[in-house]
Design a protein around this nucleic acid. Structure first.
Ligand SMILES: NC(=O)c1ccc[n+]([C@@H]2O[C@H](COP(=O)([O-])OP(=O)(O)OC[C@H]3O[C@@H](n4cnc5c(N)ncnc54)[C@H](O)[C@@H]3O)[C@@H](O)[C@H]2O)c1
Ligand SMILES: NC(=O)c1ccc[n+]([C@@H]2O[C@H](COP(=O)([O-])OP(=O)(O)OC[C@H]3O[C@@H](n4cnc5c(N)ncnc54)[C@H](O)[C@@H]3O)[C@@H](O)[C@H]2O)c1
Lengths: 275, 275
DNA sequence: AGCCGCTTGTGAATGCGTGCACAAAATCCG
DNA sequence: CGGATTTTGTGCACGCATTCACAAGCGGCT
């Protein structure tokens, strides 16, 4: 059963733990069927030590960016309250998120900006550079290849691919475009860690397969299709049409809410309720 | 207190409430279902009728796209199992998602593709067109303005804005670029529903404020900053750097997992365990 | 030194979301 | 016509995530 795509918009992740990937096999194999008798946490995970909820990981990345902004402004320490407001979250949530990665705060004072920064970077695996390849150098691919924000944050774009003969060899953002047939070779050779798919939807699955052939374990997919990948490959998708549709849903919801609230207000104007 | 940005990657939504338009209406309105009687929970929403979890909304949009693909291939009915696999989710989850919007399936048969399509469209508010404005016509803004996938899905791009004098008046994707000072006017006049921000981060908040001035209630933000908006405005963000960092985290995690698994395997090689 | 105020870190409660498993419905078939 | 078969719709239980609330800890002030 191939692992499916993890929506960039959703969440609800099973807390990326280091789990027994196959099935755990405790001493005695329990009944596969809803054995409600789950004993207790199987010994297993010798280093189960950290299991950071996926939702927390996403927020840690936000904290990191906010922190870097604060560092630029000369801040040395920061309290959970400040950081939380700047990141747009609840301060309790922020502290809990930070507690997943260790105890680096000083009670009564706050966190040291640079310490916190490097600890988050460590946990997110940002200590080294992760090389990126972009496939599909069209409208979007051009934008991505030219974007300075990636190399600036430790994600150098080190390979470009397309199928269009007119593009092959042309430099985009200082890097020549290669043919997609070379994806496996070049990715393996350059140790590409992350593949970005910006091809038309029809080509996305084939491109993804080649990336996987080239040893790429992480894929960021802009094409509006659900990619099938082997278990060890992590896919995130960015689907703008879906983002718009979610917004659209809120428009509809609000409109109707307003409508029914008007009705409700009219109906229950006698009460002193304040909403 | 300003409402904060809702991460496009997160979720954890308080279950957006739903219209519950036509459909059956149970004679007696049941008590607020989950109402734990701790005194606190105010009577609240009189029409709390149905609430669609935000996560489900995102998936409904995916189902919709899959359905449209199936319709093109001439499918008339589809089972929850088929649709679920195509959408990359569990079939139980899919059925539960669909149950939020009503009961449109036929037991033993499945769902009629066109019925399901239009019902989802109705719930998502896709029956009409939602006009979109793009602000910041740089690398990314150009790609967005030229992208045919938006108009094709009911989201016509009807205004472009930038601050660069060299760009003003130039048509991009068939639409001339206007100056950002005209945002409020033009948005109000053209009834723009959704604003897309593709400016540098420093300009994003100011641009957002102007969009709100122009009556825009929904914002899709590509700039890596947390926007502060009034309560009634819905913001979703797409942050590519954060997507990459999340992937990076998984690389690190997997590496660590592999390492510790090797160790564990070596340590426990005496057992007959098979991994 | 000792107290006070501030902030962290976390136990516990609650709420959501997911997935299982099954009853209810509808069709098919003998 | 009744039973076998298929597939929906959902009650239920579990586990993750969020939030509250507070004790523990630290620095500074007197
Ligand atoms: N442009 C946007 O703003 C935008 C927005 C949302 C989603 N998307 C999605 O991103 C993807 C790319 O969009 P775009 O606007 O850049 O499209 P585009 O047509 O401008 O570019 C697609 C590029 O992919 C190349 N290509 C085609 N087949 C290929 C293959 N088999 N292997 C490698 N490359 C191949 C084409 O030569 C072209 O250069 C599409 O899936 C689109 O749906 C784009
Ligand atoms: N290009 C990408 O692939 C990419 C990827 C991830 C995130 N982003 C983000 O998207 C945003 C845009 O990226 P880009 O690569 O298109 O940048 P860009 O520099 O190419 O384009 C920015 C555009 O915004 C315009 N602008 C500047 N100030 C403005 C203002 N006050 N009001 C209106 N317009 C203004 C500029 O004139 C320019 O046309 C940035 O925030 C960037 O971080 C881009």
């Amino acid at each position: 059963m191939a692992r499916v795509q993890r929506d960039g918009g959703d969440d609800s992740a099973p807390t990326t733990e280091l789990p027994a990937v196959r099935d755990q096999d405790p001493s005695a194999v329990s009944e596969p069927v809803t054995g409600s008798v789950n004993g207790r946490k199987v010994p297993m995970a010798t280093d189960k030590a950290r299991a950071i909820p996926e939702a927390a990981v996403a927020r840690l990345a936000v904290y990191l960016r906010v922190l870097s902004g604060m560092a630029e402004q000369g801040a040395v320490t920061v309290s959970s309250e400040e950081l939380a407001t700047a990141a747009g979250v609840n301060s309790a949530k922020l502290r809990k998120d930070l507690s997943y990665i260790g105890t680096y705060g000083t009670r009564g004072v706050g966190y040291e900006v640079d310490v916190l920064t490097s600890e988050i970077e460590r946990v997110l695996g940002l200590t080294g550079q992760q090389k990126v390849a972009v496939v599909g150098i069209g409208n979007l691919g051009h934008a991505l290849a030219n974007y300075g924000g990636f190399p600036g944050r430790g994600f150098p774009v080190e390979a470009l691919f397309d199928v269009d003969p007119d593009l092959i060899g042309i430099p985009v953002g200082g890097l020549p475009v290669n043919h997609i047939d070379d994806i496996p070779d070049i990715c393996a050779k350059r140790k590409i860690a992350i593949g970005v798919i910006a091809t038309p939807p029809t080509a996305a699955q084939a491109v993804c397969d080649r990336l996987v052939d080239g040893g790429v374990h992480c894929v960021l997919n802009f094409a509006p299709v659900v990619l099938q990948v082997p278990e060890h490959v992590e896919v995130r998708k960015v689907d703008l049409a879906i983002e718009l549709q979610i917004l659209s849903f809120h428009v509809a919801r609000n409109a109707e809410q307003r409508a029914s609230r008007r009705a409700a207000a009219a109906r229950a104007s006698s009460n002193g309720e304040v909403v």
